[in-house]
């Protein structure tokens, strides 16, 4: 992810790496529904953010990322710039239902929305980078999640903990776990996660 702000001070953060069985890897991508975090320069656009992600070509973003939410409101343009202290972006492939059509980027039924995400004001720009939480829903996580997770993501320890707690069989799919490069037993994973706030997570099958 090349867009990470250079102004960003490296945070002391634990790094967990999981090597998992190949056939189980797609199920780990659901973790991305909770979101990954990144710090970007003020004024970065949603499009610039997405295009910088591994596997997010311009064609993929324009054709497949059909729904974008910015701070809980549907957004219609990739040019929307991001200002302020933090923002939440959620992206999804095509959604069913009238609601799916209403929220679709530039959709023909967009007029049935209660509101649409307004342009964020550059007056809200800070000296420090903006913290983005990016949630990936629907086919996006399954399509691109493996590449994202292999490239190391910053996530909340709570979200990984809850994710694994709800899916105990996934523990058996973990072939190797390391904490800051040191091998650990998966039985202490929850203990580590409960003592952390944010951490760097890498999940791959090789």
């Amino acid at each position: 992810m090349t867009l990470v702000s250079k102004k960003c001070e490296p945070q002391p953060m634990q790094a967990i790496e999981l090597i998992v069985k190949t056939d189980a890897l797609p199920r780990f991508t659901t973790l991305l529904q909770s979101g990954i975090y990144m710090e970007l320069d003020q004024g970065t656009s949603i499009g610039e953010l997405l295009f910088a992600l591994p596997g997010f070509s311009e064609k993929y973003v324009k054709e497949t990322v059909q729904t974008i939410f910015l701070n809980g409101l549907p957004a219609d343009t990739l040019q929307q710039k991001l200002f302020g202290k933090e923002a939440v972006i959620a992206i999804s492939a095509a959604m069913p239902g009238l609601a799916g059509a209403i929220f679709r980027k530039d959709g023909v039924h967009a007029s049935l929305r209660t509101s649409t995400a307004a342009e964020l004001s550059s007056q809200d720009a800070l000296e420090t980078p903006i913290t983005i939480r990016l949630k990936l829903f629907n086919m996006i996580a399954m399509d691109r999640g493996k590449e994202l997770l292999a490239n190391t993501c910053i996530v909340t320890a709570k979200s990984i903990g809850a994710f694994l707690n709800y899916r105990p069989p996934l523990y058996t799919a973990i072939l190797k776990a390391t904490l800051n490069g040191e091998r650990i037993d998966t039985s202490i994973l929850q203990e580590i996660l409960s003592s952390e706030d944010m951490l760097k997570l890498t999940i791959r099958d090789k």
Partner: peptide, 18 residues
Amino acid sequence: QALGTYGSNVLVNIINEA
């Protein structure tokens, strides 16, 4: 494709986000 993978329940996350 989404419906065949997640069913209509794929809507939970996005409607919650909204």
